[in-house]
């Protein structure tokens, strides 16, 4: 979902959402079965470059998007670095045992998570949710009742946010917006969740009745307000991804950064 941040419409925005999803999803499986950190580092560089050059967002925004990734990188790699198994000890202090193997494995995990995050962000920032669901209906034959339910739910989000504000202010004025202790915190979550959920359910019911009346459920062939097709940009994306993947392997083989080829 794009948060209304100004950007240019690049060819990445013109790709077919279903095609993009089908190109990105297998990368998860591919990345999970790569155990050579050199390859992952090259891919990370390649896909960050793709993102920076063609996402159409301004550099300062892109850098802001990347800030949380830094935390994730540290948080995913730290456990493995500090507590992982390994032979060559670098540092030992109480329970903490850093070894060469665990260090590279930790860094490898960090890059892995970073890659998933880049793919996710690239998809989210260059895809209109409305077109994604229209495309899923047309190219992936998703049943209309599911697609239109998602679309309706996405449209309800602003109302929910507004309601959250109302509930928050109502609780604040009654000095009930704070609570102490674990039980208190859980009570607090309920105080917010119950009105929000019950209202959402009622609203969903009303909308569903209206949608059923307007035959959003029928399974017969239907026409669409937005016609989403496949195009040349999907081929570009396929070629770019294949190039980065192949180049990553080649460079990792010819000019490795670290000597380790398998972090397991």
């Amino acid at each position: 979902m794009r948060w209304g941040i100004e950007h240019k419409e690049t060819w990445l925005h013109q790709t077919n959402p279903t095609a993009k999803l089908l190109l990105f999803l297998p990368m998860f499986v591919v990345i999970v079965f790569v155990h050579n950190p050199n390859v992952l580092i090259n891919w990370t560089i390649g896909f960050i470059a793709l993102f920076m050059l063609f996402s159409g967002y301004r550099m300062k925004h892109v850098l802001l998007f990347f800030v949380p990734f830094l935390f994730i990188f540290i948080s995913t790699s730290s456990s493995m670095i500090l507590f992982g198994k390994g032979e060559t000890t670098w540092f030992r202090w109480g329970l903490i045992h850093i070894t060469e193997e665990s260090f590279y494995r930790g860094v490898h995990l960090g890059f892995r998570t970073l890659l998933f995050a880049i793919f996710g962000l690239m998809f989210a920032l260059t895809t209109k949710p409305v077109l994604l669901f229209y495309s899923l209906m047309q190219q992936a034959k998703l049943k209309p009742k599911y697609a239109y339910s998602f679309l309706a739910a996405i449209r309800l989000l602003p109302i929910m946010l507004e309601e959250f504000q109302t509930v928050h202010q109502a609780l604040k004025v009654r000095r009930a917006a704070k609570a102490n202790g674990f039980r208190g915190k859980l009570e607090l979550v309920k105080r917010y969740a119950i009105p929000l959920l019950s209202q959402s359910i009622r609203r969903a019911q009303r909308i569903a009745v209206a949608m059923e009346a307007k035959a959003f459920t029928n399974e017969r062939p239907r026409t669409f307000y937005y016609e989403v097709t496949l195009g040349k940009y999907d081929v570009y994306l396929l070629v770019v991804i294949c190039t980065i993947v192949a180049l990553g392997y080649y460079v990792a083989d010819m000019f490795p950064y670290v000597a380790i080829k398998d972090v397991r």
Partner: peptide, 10 residues
């Protein structure tokens, strides 16, 4: 995912 999760695709 659509809200831009830090974990992205996974």
């Amino acid at each position: 995912f659509l809200a831009g999760s830090e974990w992205g695709l996974e």
